[in-house]
Design a protein around this nucleic acid. Structure first.
Lengths: 136, 136
DNA sequence: CTTGAAGCTATAGTGACTAGAGGGATTATA
DNA sequence: TATAATCCCTCTAGTCACTATAGCTTCAAG
């Protein structure tokens, strides 16, 4: 049995976020101490770790809810879980591609060696989309 | 002189977003027609393009405000604009690195070939952080 | 002159938290 | 045992950058 603070330390999820997850129905409301403080069990910790990890991987909360429900029915086909992961992979790959174009453009920007705004590549590039190296 | 709809079409910024930018003070309130509809000039279009492009590059609105102010004083040193771009480049590079770790993990996830939840790699991997290939 | 698309304001909702106020509980030390 | 320090409680509101909705008015084409 640990307090919310200890749960937070063990999982890396901030205290207000834990309470928020409880409110959102991602984790069950835990037992309380005599003084009305939350007391978590190991099961609660595992569930929160699952959530934390999934969030780190960028899964939205609704998807995590689905994954959690699925994980509670080990005899069901894993079809849906698989689908969520694949869909997410696609999104991540698109985000990477976009960011790499952006990186190239910013690298160019940050090499600006003008002294004043009037010949600063940053402003110029942002002002005129037509000057971009890449299309976005 | 064009309407908000035309401005939207020309810049790719959605109509409610244009009005939102006006409210946030990113763009000036334009002139109005007799019937109280917004009428934009070419200057307004250029400013909105600047904003749109900057947003696509992921600059937060506050940074864009600064960049816009800077661009209005072409005789000032471009120091700040340059700083904003460099700072942003760092953030982007960190985001890319994180996403690529994530991509590797998701690829592994999406190759799950279990039939039921109980041996689905997706659920398993999310449940046990210790199984991750990478540290995040 | 009518009709349908486009525009107006104002308010509320989104996602995933984060911050603050104003209090009560628990724990470590004197 | 007293007390101080730390932790925890609820509730409300704020963040960012939009997005959606409702109920109305205006514009442009035929």
């Amino acid at each position: 049995m640990f307090s919310i603070g200890e749960l937070s330390r063990r999982t890396g999820v901030k205290i207000p976020t834990i309470r928020y997850y409880e409110q959102m129905g991602l984790i069950d409301a835990p037992e309380r101490s005599e003084g009305n403080q939350r007391r978590y069990t190991k099961a609660g910790l595992q569930r929160l770790s699952f959530i934390h990890h999934s969030r780190e991987l960028g899964f939205p909360i609704e998807d995590i809810k689905t994954l959690l429900e699925l994980s509670q029915h080990p005899d069901k086909p894993c079809h849906d879980a698989h689908g969520i992961a694949v869909r997410h992979l696609g999104q991540v790959q698109r985000r990477i591609a976009k960011l790499r174009r952006l990186e190239r453009e910013l690298k160019r920007l940050s090499q600006c060696d003008g002294d004043t705004i009037s010949d600063c590549a940053v402003i110029e590039t942002l002002a005129d989309h037509g000057l971009c190296e890449t299309d976005h």
